[in-house]
Amino acid sequence: MPTTFFGWIAFLLEKYWLLFLSGAINTLLIAVVGTVCGFIIGLMVAIVRTITLRRGASRVKRFGLQAARGFLSAYIEIFRGTPMIVQAMVVYYGASQYLGINIPALTAAFLVVSVNTGAYMAEIVRGGILSIDKGQTEAAIAVGMSHWQRMTTVILPQAIRNILPSVANEFVVNIKDSSVLNVISVTEVFFQSKSAAGTYFRYFEVFFITAVIYFILTFTFTRLLRLLEKKLSGASSYTVYGSQSSYAAEIEVKKE
């Protein structure tokens, strides 16, 4: 048996590298699937919640929209107002006890993280939509676009660019918070670490490794997302055409 801290680290890594690796992969998988699905849910919810009916709209439409809005508000409030660890328990055991379905733990994890993230994303997207000048919507109405067309061609492309930092933040939160899914035996990196630590009762050394793994994951992905942001915010320089003094001027502008 090793006697020093580094000795233990080396020993545990050698013995359990596969466990750590598979845990890290599952953690990343849950974070990616949860964030992407959550983002799509958030977009859809925000699109529905920003529908406005004109005054002549029929009673059926009015009622339908009210009902949808009520449902979505309840969804957002409930999932933002309860811990994900509890949601995981309720979904996983609820499904097996009352619906008789044994969902695989990883599937349950995807579901819980997606739906949970969706509730936060819905608010983030709504904020992004509100940040876009009202004139953009009016101009889109004035060429005859429907709510869906306005959102997908004009508003959301601009809004998404503005909210990208918040979306990236959600992704990082998901990498870390997926650790709570160990309560339903999802084999993500925290669960794997617990198994590894239990054999030799080396909790400190194992979770030191776990902390490093989490940090590497979050740090790498924040950098990658920062790059993506830069790319989406356009070229580093652009040309302005025409000036007050010269009609045909072309002025090269460099962004900071």
């Binding site: 004109r54 004139g135 953009q136 004035a142 060429v143 005859g144 061609t153 004009v154 601009q158 660019r161």
Partner: peptide, 22 residues
């Protein structure tokens, strides 16, 4: 219907309101 009304009655705004992403 809104889409055909707006296509037939066009509008030009004080603040231009070009779609900034296009």
């Amino acid at each position: 219907p809104p889409s055909s009304l707006h296509a037939k009655i066009g509008m030009v705004f004080q603040q231009f309101n070009l779609f900034n992403n296009l």
